[in-house]
Design a protein around this nucleic acid. Structure first.
Length: 431
RNA sequence: GUGGGUGUAGCUCAGCUGGCUAGAGCACCAGGUUGUGGUCCUGGGGGUCGCGGGUUCGAAUCCCGUCACUCACCCCA
């Protein structure tokens, strides 16, 4: 009976794993250089944890199961609820600001399609505690630093930034009632994926369409500059003015971090979730029909649903699938090679025991070293060394028998030298 | 859940107006090569042509069904 890889899931053969690790290394490296600390959580949680945040609809979109005690669990479809649970449990003991990141593997029970699988990895980074726009700016700076690290510049990607409260205040000045903002956002979120006539029809179905028509909204979304939007928001009242000031600060900080060149103001980015309460952003490829590479924003209270103290925060998630897919499309995926520091070759089968002895020395010194399982000719062993991506070949032959020396060949430059066995074992330097 | 496309070797594919034992390139293994690699030459392993049924003397090829994969829609934390 033939059993294949489950749908929407991936096998990572060593060739694939090198690429995956290349991505993880950048994710981790960028996080660490920005002062974030790594955390991890269980691969599955109580199903109720996700119900609290997302409601009952979530149940059909997660892989869930019941244990022998009748308790319901779900394989994590996102990291934020676990983060909330962990932070709530120690909210008063954790030093602030809480700057945490994670590279969790997660699953969603969806039908797989391009850029979207049932199992994937998603880099999460969050700053919890401060309400200052500085935190929002730093989180965006982390995203930009990653994009730059993998070779993506302003011609390839734009980080589109908006602010839900500012946009809401501006919409209200245009005539949208306060209780209609959520519905308006829901539609605006889809405007780029919807044909113009469908959008117009849907907008005109909204109860307040007479107060703020579809043309007014289109003009607003398409042309409003940051200044005009801030101005409209300020006119809506005291709160709008305060939010506009926050958003102004955010842009100032993005400049200070040196990442404003990758960022654009975009009113269409509102993020569907009601969960976001302040800044919102997404990184979008400039060419190709691909989805957003990442999305995030500010939320007022991470732990509120879990009966924890109020903890405001800002963060984002970035999936491995769309990022790798985009880089592949641009033909900018690296192809990391297999690597070894050295490959030990025995020119004479009598010396095989000595070869293993040397392999042991080098490995104990922390070098990545391998050798051939078969006692074949020197030529074949060199071929294996090359195939394995070895940087150096170390040959044990007549030199060892006659003068107690080994030959070290640099397989990149092709040069070789001899060195005394005892000196080399005492201090195994290859270069 | 709805609709389109595609199924031949590990990968990319050819063969498809029915007809020798189903092929190529890449990859893999072995040898050429008993002290020097990446290129070269020779050979080898690997496929119930997704699966089931039908038509036929004969099906990878034609017909029906089915399954899988894939793209899009829904959803998107």
């Amino acid at each position: 009976m033939k059993i294949q890889t489950p749908p929407g899931m991936r096998d990572f053969y060593p060739d694939d794993m090198r690429l995956q690790n290349w991505l993880f290394t950048h994710w981790r490296q960028v996080s660490l250089t920005h002062g974030f600390e790594e955390y991890e959580a269980p691969i599955f949680e109580f199903l109720d944890l996700y119900r609290l945040k997302s409601g009952d609809e979530i149940v059909s979109e997660v892989f869930s199961f019941e244990d022998r005690g009748g308790r319901n669990f779900a394989i994590r479809p996102e990291m934020t609820p676990s983060l909330a649970r962990m932070v709530a449990a120690r909210a008063n003991a954790l030093p602030r600001p809480i700057k945490w990141f994670s590279l969790p593997r997660m699953c969603r029970a969806e039908r797989p399609q391009r850029g979207r699988l049932r199992e994937f990895f998603q880099w999460n980074a969050d700053v919890l505690g401060p309400e200052d726009a500085l935190a929002d700016a730093e989180v965006i700076a982390v995203v930009v630093a990653f994009l730059r690290a993998v070779g993506l510049g302003p011609d390839d990607v734009a980080v589109r930034v908006n602010h839900r409260r500012v946009a809401a205040a501006a919409l209200q000045t245009l005539g949208v009632p306060a209780d209609g903002v959520v519905a308006a956002f829901g539609l605006i979120d889809k405007i780029e994926r919807m044909p113009a006539d469908k959008f117009a029809a849907a907008w005109n179905d909204l109860p307040f369409a007479s107060a703020c028509g579809v043309d007014a909204v289109r003009g607003f979304l398409g042309e409003a500059t940051l200044e005009r939007c801030l101005d409209l928001a300020a006119q809506s009242g005291e709160d709008g003015a305060a939010q506009a000031e926050q958003f102004t600060q955010l842009w100032r900080q993005l400049e200070a971090f040196g990442v404003a060149g990758m960022c654009t103001f975009d009113l269409r980015i509102v993020r569907g979730l009601a969960y976001y309460t302040g800044s919102v952003f997404e990184a979008h490829p400039k060419q190709g029909g691909l989805r957003a590479l990442c999305g995030g924003g500010r939320y007022d209270d991470l732990t509120g649903l879990l009966d924890g103290p109020r903890v405001p925060g800002v963060g984002f998630g970035m999936g491995d699938v769309p990022v790798l897919e985009f880089l592949r499309e641009l033909d900018r995926l690296p192809s990391p090679e297999r690597t070894l520091d050295a490959f030990v070759i025995d020119a004479d089968a009598d010396l095989f025991a000595r070869a293993l002895e040397l392999v042991g020395h080098l490995r104990a010194a922390g070098l990545r070293v391998d050798f051939s399982y078969k006692r074949t000719g020197v030529g074949k062993q060199f071929k294996q060394a090359t195939q394995r991506g070895a940087r150096h070949a170390i040959v044990l032959g007549d030199e060892l028998k006659d003068r107690n020396e080994v030959v070290i060949k640099d397989l990149v430059s092709g040069t070789q030298r001899t060195i005394d066995w005892d000196a080399f074992c005492a201090d195994p330097k290859l270069d």
